[in-house]
Design a protein around this nucleic acid. Sequence first.
DNA 1: GCCCTTGTTACGCC
DNA 2: AGGCGTAACAAGGG
Length: 265
Amino acid sequence: MPEGLEVEIYRRAAEAVVGRTVASAEVDERQAQASEIRSALPGCSVVGVDRVGKLLLIDFDRWQLGIHFGMAGRLIVDGFAPIETLAYSSSQDRPDWDRLVLTFDPSDGAAGTLRVNDPRRWSRFTLNPEVDSLGTDLFDLDPQRLYALLGRRTAPLKTVLLDQSVVAGLGNMLVDELLFQAGIDPSRPARSLSLDEVERLVATARSHLPEMLASGGSDAGLLHPGIRKSLGPCPHPDCRGGQLQRQVFGGRTTVSCRKHQRFDR
DNA sequence: GCCCTTGTTACGCC
DNA sequence: AGGCGTAACAAGGG
């Protein structure tokens, strides 16, 4: 599922269309702004691509298009999919799953297309999206700021870290992976964390997120989709005799180690 | 054919 | 007002 890492991979692929001009735009009829997007984009040039959390931003000379990939949306640029197989999605690229197709003008820069292919149909396209409600991007975490935010919340840490207004870009798998690597129990009330623990969590994010980005994304961690299903012994190199367990917080499946992520550590 | 999966939003309740 | 918990949503895959 496209979390911040996947969207960063998409962003890098989308840089290929900077400088091109949109010839035509096709948008899934069910999108709230389908007609606005169809009429706004033709004739516009791409001046840059950006990302905030899970939101990809395509900057045009007059507008900004926000793309949220839901849980299964794949970006395809000039026929190339930067992420071939996405967990919980499909590796097929069926034309009837195209939800957004931007075709570029061959007479003005390069031709080609930028597509969002999404079997689940949960991708969302927004003209000039509001980004003020999003929290710190997952690559810009700051221990003091995060500690202050967590201190006001009584909900389980797992739930609060998934809140996009606290940290933008962390999804279900990344939160589990970071808490697993940092050795912190996801069930703890967010405000029970010490500053030391928040610092450990942020240090883990700073070291592991770039590594996972380089090795393909959110499912490149120790708690990959296969082990999330099978559970079994803890795969952490420093943990001996731990067992993985599955719990649900805020309706989200959470995998953690009974031993090295215990509250009493 | 049922159940699981995801991120976000819409509720009701406190 | 806003935090918290839960349901609902789409639809492919097991």
